[in-house]
Design a binder for these strands. Structure first.
Length: 491
RNA sequence: GGUCUCUUGGCCGAGUGGCUAGGCAGUGGUCUGCAAAACCAUGUACGGCGGUUCGAAUCCGCCAGAGACCUCCA
């Protein structure tokens, strides 16, 4: 119905027509969050991006199994921080919580944020801590096949050996010689044959709380391992799409490919998709850089750099107004633009329900529809798709204004088109309307005040009329005099 | 230092050899007692310097600036 869906594949650095391994079915894996603190705006981007991918694949009538992991075993800290302490256990000590309590807390808040952003839950959300056995089995297999070696209770992946049979660095465009000469010297690497070897199993230091027993040592899995183990378990040895942030390309995804390929003999993933970063003041927003704004802060406006609160849908729309492979600059001005743009789009959708159909259509909506889907098909180009939605808005408004007319059939067609694209595929939703509809008491009170104001107006008592309007405005209720009467909404 | 990417009008952001998105802001207008909202109209921008071409923001080269990765990171 909608032509070929094209995806930019990081592996080939080209756009490719998407063709699933199994007709009609898609296996999708996306790197999920490490749950040790609240999610920030940067985290929201991949989850919104791949949520739209998931929704679009569903729209294209694929049966999708979407796996998105939760990293809850913690990984090594930056060496500069000392100790090699697990980042989750470190936080736990600071807050005097059990590690799993920290995990639970932030997993809950992550889920809540995702719900606010209308990000659909994945089909399976496996936790690394629940797949220690699978990860150990994978290590075992790599040891048996000679791609890993044990050293002082830890197990490392032998990159050199792997590179003899396969191509280490193909995803990120590196080769081993470059890596060899350019890898920085880090401490605590004497155990490894080569500095670029990475841990599959790490022996825990005494103060490390999160640990599991194994034949090698009491320890914990290396940070690339869980994705290999869990994607294989739930999606099979070969699956269609793997997504994640661009900053994970190397080393994380590179190592993931190496582990899986060494184990399975062939590459597991057909299409690698990477979203770009959100920037703030010209720099990547990242926890480590301390320049982040959490989603909760964004939604409440409670952060010094925020001029106001921004609703979840504003954030979602903001993210979708840029292509997922482009950098996106954060600023109050940009966010406010998105807020107003979204409002314009949503207003047009409700206008759609007020339009009276005529016998004939004087407008042609087909090109809007075609261009919109063409954009989505072109590597999920949501900004272009949205641009065409706005072209449609212009048409809708001119019908409303009586400049154009539309037949019943075409009107229904447009309604279903906007429903599909805006709500189903882009995953936007109405905000605020709930409060208005759900509170009969409030609604009754406001209607009464509007009635009183109307009387004041007919008596030309502008002072009273304006007082009612302005005071309501102060407590967050906006009164609008429109052609068709008085409308009100919660701000 | 190595690998890679980017530089578009006041802001955010598409595009990638000729047809010169879209949103926001600004300006003008419609509506209105006023206001807000809404709606309509309106902007010829592509870092600099060369080159290729009938024609370049789009291709090539150089220069300048910014960023990402190489280390936990969405």
């Amino acid at each position: 119905m909608t032509g070929n869906f094209v995806i930019y594949n990081t592996l080939t650095r080209k756009k490719e027509v998407f063709k699933p391994l199994v007709e009609g079915k898609v296996g999708l894996y996306v790197c999920g969050p490490t749950v040790y603190s609240d999610s920030h705006l940067g985290h929201a981007r991949p989850f919104i991006t791949f949520d739209v991918l998931y929704r679009y694949l569903n729209y294209l009538e694929y049966k999708v199994r979407y796996v998105r992991n939760i990293t809850d075993v913690g990984h090594l800290e930056d060496e500069v921080e000392g100790s090699g302490e697990d980042r989750i256990s470190k936080k736990a000590r600071l807050e005097k919580l059990e590690p799993m309590e920290v995990v639970q807390k932030y997993m809950n808040s992550f889920h809540f944020n995702m719900m606010q952003l209308n990000v659909k839950p994945p089909s399976i959300e496996p936790r690394a801590s629940g797949h220690i056995i699978e990860q150990q089995e994978l290590i075992e297999s790599l040891l048996t096949k000679g791609f890993a070696y044990e050293s002082n209770g830890s197990v490392y992946f032998d990159v050199e050996k792997y590179n003899q049979d396969f191509d280490y660095g193909k995803l990120s465009g590196r080769n081993l010689d470059d890596i060899r000469t350019n890898t920085r010297k880090l401490d605590g690497q004497e155990e490894k044959k080569n500095s670029f070897d990475f841990a599959l199993w790490k022996k825990a230091t005494p103060e490390h709380i999160m640990r599991w027993s194994s034949k090698w040592s009491d320890g914990f899995p290396g940070w690339h391992l869980e994705c290999s183990a869990m994607s294989t378990k739930y999606l099979g040895e070969k699956f269609d799409i793997h997504g994640g942030g661009m900053d994970l390309t190397f080393p994380h995804h590179e190592c993931e490919i190496a582990q899986s390929t060494a184990n399975l003999g062939e590459e597991p993933v057909q299409y690698w998709m990477h979203n770009n970063m959100i920037k703030i003041n010209g720099q990547k927003m990242a926890r480590s850089l301390g320049n982040f704004v959490t989603l909760q802060e964004l939604f409440s406006g409670n952060h010094e750099i925020l001029e106001q609160a921004y609703s979840p849908m504003t954030i979602r729309f903001f993210v979708l107004q840029a292509h997922y492979r482009s950098e996106l600059d954060f600023s109050n001005e940009a966010l406010q633009a998105s807020e107003k743009g979204l409002n314009r789009l949503m207003t047009a959708l409700s206008t759609l329900n007020e339009i009276q159909a005529s016998k004939v259509s004087t407008v042609d909506f087909d090109s809007v529809k075609e261009k919109c889907f063409a954009a989505l098909n072109d590597d999920l180009n949501t900004p272009i798709a949205i641009a065409h939605l706005f072209d449609g808005v212009k048409i809708i408004n001119s019908i409303k204004a009586g400049k154009e007319s539309i037949s019943v059939r075409d009107l229904n067609d447009i309604k279903s088109f906007y429903n599909k694209v805006v709500f189903e595929i882009l995953g936007l939703q109405e905000e605020n309307s709930d409060a208005k509809e759900n509170s009969e008491i409030l609604s009754g009170v406001v209607e009464l005040l509007i009635e009183l104001r109307k009387q004041a107006k007919s008596n030309k008592d502008w002072g009273m009329a304006d007082k009612i309007r302005d005071d309501l405005n102060k407590i967050g209720i906006e009164i609008k005099d429109t052609k068709d009467g008085v409308d009100w909404m919660l701000k």
